[in-house]
Design a protein around this nucleic acid. Structure first.
Lengths: 170, 170
DNA sequence: GCAACTGATTGCAAAATGCAATCGGATTGC
DNA sequence: GCAATCCGATTGCATTTTGCAATCAGTTGC
């Protein structure tokens, strides 16, 4: 891990971690899209990440302690990437970034419904989501009933897509 | 302003705005350091930004609607850069970034005390700070008494510096 | 056996970055 | 009045990072 930093300022150090155009996108897809495998991230990326950039960022995020990699027992060549607690605690930052972007930038309705739901849910929903991620990625115990936060966000997305398709057809 | 985007996802669009190593640093110095002039930002930058990068980012941030530029009446050659509401509403994101960095990254004590105070103050303090910035940069009215938030943060920083100097001397 | 799929790696062109020097005009010190 | 300094940049150039397409060797399904 690289240890020479521009300064010890927390905002600067945070920027040194994900102050580029891809690292947070990869983490977003893992957190909200549930992506765990290289090909999933590569082909599922709506922004169209290149394979060498993806490989480089995954390596970098592992060196920084944001991700871990493990063998997939179902396929000798498959690797499963997992979020660490360090990455899971980015959820509130993602929520704020999404909320800010929804206000000031030309977001599309179907891609911003998740951000809206996350914003409306507030810190309690973020905590519940982080507990789900700890369960999925760290094997932590979980005691929640009902649909998962990710499924709820996904359902919201699909409802918008369906409504827009209906509006276009009818 | 560039209008072709990788996707309409709010997190992606936010990254397209400040997903680089300098834009947020410049905004941080304006917000927390009170910097308004080119030379102030150039010479006061602890991370050592280059003049061409600074000029490029200032221009870019203006095109994106995050900054405005005006003549300084006290000096015909000086330009005063002002934050727009769009940039002022980044304060909560800055606060979260700072809080996250303080937990997970090798921050220095003197440069992270501001982040700690901001985190402890929570959303009410952020709102008060944003009102100060609206007053300074947008000419909005303000009805607050006592020391400014920025002065309070600055006092905290100087207290740490003084304490460390004393500890080193004694 | 062989096509499809796995997580990558390589080569190369283009863009971004870092750094030092410099610009013309404005202001300050004296 | 005049030199030194300060103003917001701009230029040139070497280095680094990025984006894209092609490719790799091992694994799996059939």
């Amino acid at each position: 891990m690289n240890t020479d930093h521009r300064s010890g300022c927390p905002i600067n150090l945070s920027l040194e971690v994900f102050g580029d155009r891809w690292s947070l996108i990869i983490l977003r897809d893992m957190i909200f899209g549930g992506r765990r495998h290289f090909r999933e991230m590569l082909n599922g990326s709506i922004e169209g990440i290149a394979s060498n950039i993806l490989a480089d960022r995954l390596k970098r995020l592992m060196e920084l302690g944001m991700l871990t990699k493990a063998d997939d027992p179902s396929h000798k060549q498959k690797a499963i990437y997992s979020l660490t607690e360090m990455a899971i605690t980015l959820v509130p930052i993602m929520a704020h970034l999404g909320a800010w972007g929804r206000v000031w930038l030309p977001v599309s309705e179907e891609l911003s419904i998740r951000a809206e739901l996350l914003e409306n849910g507030g810190p309690p929903l973020w905590e519940r989501f982080m507990d789900e991620l700890r369960h999925e990625h760290l094997g932590a115990a979980i005691d929640q009933e009902g649909p998962t936060v990710r499924a709820t966000l996904q359902a919201g997305y699909e409802a918008v897509v369906a409504r827009k398709a209906e509006a276009a057809a009818g």
